[in-house]
Design a binder for these strands. Structure first.
Length: 267
DNA sequence: CGTGGGACCTGAACGC
DNA sequence: TGCGTTCAGGTCCCAC
C-alpha cells in the first residue's frame, strides 16, 4: 500500500488501542517476516514489555515497547490490524503478536515483501531516511530539491532525500505543481521547487484526510477503505482526460515505475 | 554519482 | 474454463 498517508492512517487507527497493552507472545507463519531474527529470540526480547508509544517515520511504523522497537514496513500489500484470537479468515497473516487484553496485533501481507523487525535503536532508520515532508518549510524544499541531475520524479521516490513519498503522491504532486516528471531536478527554478514542496505537502495532507488510497490491498486497521483514490488527478488515469484541460493523461515508465502526467498542463 | 536490470513474492486483471 | 502474460502502492543489490 503504503505511502506516507496510508501508513499514517494505520498508525492513527491503532495507537490508542495499542499503547498501554503488554506483549505476551508472537507467532509467525513465514520465517522471513522477522528479517533474520529467530522467533525465540524475538519472543525473549519482547515478552512482557508494555507498549509505550506508536508513531510513523517515513513509510515505517514504529511501536515502542518499553525500550525496544517493533519496526514494521508494509511494502506493497501489508496490512496491520487488531483481531480477536478466535478469528482466522485472513490467509495472508504472516505475524501476530498476542496482547494481554486478549487481542492480537496481526500483520498480513500477500506478497511477503513486508517485514516486522525488533530493534533496540532506530538509528538505522535515520541513516536511510531523509526529513519528514509535512514539517519542512519552503526554504527546506528549495534547498533539498537542488543539485541533482536525476529526473525529479525519480528524485522524489528516493527516501534518503524526502521520507514517505511514493509512486502515487509523486505523480500527484508533480501534476499539481505543473512540472513534468522527467525534468532534471537541478533544472527546476527556485519558484518551481518551492511550488513542488507546497504541492507535496498538499497532496499528502489531503490523502491523510481521506484516510489513504485503497486501490487494491490497502485497508484501514478497522477494515474500511480509504478514499484518497477518489481524488487522484493523474495516477492510474492513463488515457483519460485531464480534469484541467481535457488532454489524455500520458503514461510512461520512469525509474522503472509507471508515471502519469498531463503533457499540456505540466511543463 | 547515476541508471538500468533483476530480485524478492503473490494475486488480480486481461487476452486468447 | 483455463493458461500465459503483465502489472502492482517498495526497497535492495549489482553491473556498467
Amino acid at each position: 500500500m503504503p505511502e506516507l498517508p496510508e501508513v499514517e492512517t494505520v498508525v492513527r487507527g491503532l495507537v490508542d488501542d495499542l499503547v498501554g497493552t503488554t506483549a505476551v507472545e508472537a507467532s509467525i507463519s513465514w520465517h522471513k517476516v522477522l528479517g533474520g531474527m529467530s522467533l525465540s529470540e524475538f519472543n525473549e526480547t519482547i515478552r512482557g514489555r508494555k507498549i509505550t508509544a506508536m508513531f510513523r517515520r517515513g513509510k515505517y511504523i514504529c511501536i515502542e515497547c518499553s525500550g525496544v522497537y517493533l519496526v514494521i514496513h508494509l511494502r506493497m500489500t501489508g496490512r496491520l490490524y487488531l483481531s480477536d484470537a478466535a478469528e482466522g479468515e485472513d490467509k495472508w497473516v504472516r505475524f501476530t503478536l498476542a496482547l494481554d487484553n486478549g487481542k492480537n496485533l496481526a500483520f498480513s501481507d500477500a506478497r511477503k515483501f513486508g517485514r516486522v523487525l525488533l530493534t533496540r535503536s532506530l538509528d538505522f532508520l535515520e541513516e536511510k531516511l531523509g526529513p519528514e515532508p509535512l514539517t519542512l518549510k519552503p526554504a527546506d524544499f528549495i534547498q533539498i530539491l537542488k543539485g541533482s541531475s536525476r529526473a525529479v520524479k525519480v528524485f522524489l521516490l528516493d527516501q534518503k532525500k524526502i521520507a514517505g513519498v511514493g509512486n502515487i503522491y509523486a505523480d500527484e504532486s508533480l501534476h499539481k505543481a505543473g512540472i513534468k516528471p522527467g525534468r532534471p531536478t537541478n533544472k527546476l527554478r527556485v519558484a518551481e521547487r518551492e511550488k513542488l514542496g507546497a504541492c507535496i505537502q498538499e497532496s499528502l495532507q489531503a490523502a491523510i484526510d481521506h484516510e489513504g488510497a485503497s486501490i487494491s490491498w490497502y485497508r484501514k486497521p478497522d477494515g474500511g477503505r480509504g478514499e484518497s483514490q477518489e481524488h487522484f488527478l493523474v495516477y492510474g488515469r492513463g488515457g483519460e482526460p485531464c480534469y484541467t484541460c481535457g488532454t489524455p493523461i500520458t503514461k510512461i515508465v520512469l525509474g522503472q515505475r509507471g508515471t502519469h502526467y498531463c503533457h499540456k498542463c505540466q511543463t
